[in-house]
Amino acid sequence: MYTCCYLGGKPAAEPANSDYSDVPLEDKDLLEKFAQPESRNMAFNQLVRKYQEKVYWHIRKMVIDHDDADDLTQDVFLKVWKNLENFRQDAQLYTWIYRIATNECLSFLSSKKRKFFLPLHDITAELTEKVEASPDLAGDEVQLKLQKAILQLPDKQRLVFNMKYFEDLKYEEMSEILGTSVGALKASYHIAVKKIEEFLKRD
């Protein structure tokens, strides 16, 4: 049995059966509690619960496969754990976590290309097969075609499209996460939409 979640840019709902307080802490409070050894685990657990869905779906839309997304999500939080002490608060915590997740995704996809000596279109074919095999898209020709169209985009452009279209992030936030100018992101999204619509027009 599978559960579908769509979050967009909104904060994740807190699970009811948690070991810790259900009142979500502000990032600043989380960081303060993380800095104290006695409350470190509690703070990190809350951080994972707060951001897990955003991180997971951000990754899942890039790697498609649930098991890959699961591994990468855990890797991201492990990196967050190891580096949170050195996190400088000149950036927002969630943009910092997003940046780690984005880097993990891109590294995963490029390592997969290197590992199998496959050119770009073969990776796309592999991801497309996974999309076609997805039981959730069975019978929904329009959604299936949209997902296949998105997979035709280059990795970074796909990332920009997902962040804007599905996750509803502002260009300024995306700029902070990806280290790219707002203008370049707008242009990239515009081009991505054009490519997708071209693909949708084709039979």
């Binding site: 579908c4 948690s18 685990n41 994972v48 649930h66 699961d70 599905f166």
Partner: peptide, 25 residues
């Protein structure tokens, strides 16, 4: 095209994930 997430996760996945991450830490 209506905007929706076409992918799903196993039941209770997000309930269990924090504990799995904490195990790894």
């Amino acid at each position: 095209i209506p905007k929706r997430n076409p992918y799903q996760v196993p039941d209770g996945y997000f309930d269990r994930l924090p504990a799995r991450v904490m195990e790894r830490t």
